[in-house]
Design a protein around this nucleic acid. Structure first.
Lengths: 201, 201
DNA sequence: CACTAGCTAGACCAGTCGGTCTAGTTGCGC
DNA sequence: GCGCAACTAGACCGACTGGTCTAGCTAGTG
């Protein structure tokens, strides 16, 4: 329908209709998080995106796997950005701020899109690429946090452990939040994670 | 592993061949954890269990969903038992001890069977029963820990929060361990979880 | 205008899915 | 022995899966 990837070529009436590729990606993101990688069929994704199969395989020649990798990369990027672009002074404050944003997302989506990468982890055995994408995702998030913690003055070794723990808490928190259909557990995870970033010894 | 549900009925030669029902359950447990709920097909499970489809639907009339619920219940029970039967004095020690056991399981299974309930969580939208089973699983684990923490003298409110955080860390830790194919992150999670059980203020 | 990429469109396909059903087989109570 | 219930066995099924392929539309260029 509408368009523009690098260059615009949108007609004058596409106001609420982004790029087909983007629409497919958004639909996949939504459904993968809601029903898992296997649980979300290509047809479901296509329907939600209002796109035909031809477009999907034009934009993602690698098929479902490529879409999965792209989705993981997008989630990762958005979270890492959240960590890195924050203007808060301490890492603890950064985590609180980012956590707040995530909490809103969770609420906005009726607690459906909570778990982050778990949906893809199970594919590790059948799709190495997806497995690598998830491993990278965790690594990037941890690294971003570790860097901030170190610039707070924390020793590298400790910073890495704390950063890892923060990621675990957020992931686990998102999971329990989804299971219980409530943001409360996630907010608790954020609080715990933030306090891990404060106390430094 | 062994057999017999209510009454035994084993022939004299089934030494290494438990009850069909148990075999199916064990196979399902293994494959669900490795490939996720959708990723593991009934045929795969049946093949691993060396059982025909008739047996499966005889023992689990509810089909795949019933097997899923049973698997979740079994995992839950084994973990809660780990928490409750420990003779360690403090909850921190209990967590360390249970964590050690889990670490061994992770190593023994080539980091394949790590994530605990995530595989089933995605089914919440299509199968209420599985969703409830997972929610119960988290609730039971948390409750068991909370009880122990309170008997350590911790205030109920705080105990509940700490217990929840411990579960989150373990779940998140298991996930990252699977992603990275290493027990190290899980052991870190256990350490953090244990220290959450100590400091009481 | 014609020509060509880029993209849309969806019919189509082989394979697999979870699930059903009928036909044995087995072992215990009588 | 017979009879019956518990269980095993696997052929079979419709629905649906991810993926392929050809045809057509559309915009930009000469």
């Amino acid at each position: 329908m509408a368009a523009s990837k690098t260059r615009t070529k949108q007609s004058s009436t596409d106001s609420d209709m982004p790029d087909t590729r983007a629409r497919i990606l958004a639909a996949a993101l939504r459904l993968f998080r809601k029903r898992g990688y296997h649980g979300a069929g290509l047809n479901d994704i296509l329907e939600l995106a209002s796109a035909p199969k031809g477009s999907l395989y034009h934009h993602f020649p690698g098929g479902k796997e490529e879409i999965g990798v792209a989705v993981v990369a997008e989630i990762t990027r958005s979270i890492v950005t959240l960590f890195e672009s924050s203007r808060a002074r301490t890492t603890a404050a950064v985590v609180l701020q980012a956590g707040e944003q995530m909490s809103h997302t969770i609420e906005r989506t009726n607690h459906e899109l909570c778990t982050l990468f778990t949906a893809f982890l199970a594919e590790r055995s059948t799709s190495p690429k997806l497995g690598i994408a998830v491993a990278n995702a965790y690594a990037e998030m941890t690294e971003a946090l570790q860097t901030r913690l170190q610039s707070d003055g924390m020793k590298p070794r400790l910073a890495k452990d704390r950063a890892t723990a923060v990621v675990m808490l957020l992931e686990g928190g998102a999971m329990i939040a989804q299971a219980q259909q409530s943001v409360a557990p996630f907010r608790l995870a954020v609080k715990q994670a933030a306090s891990l970033c404060e106390i430094a010894d």
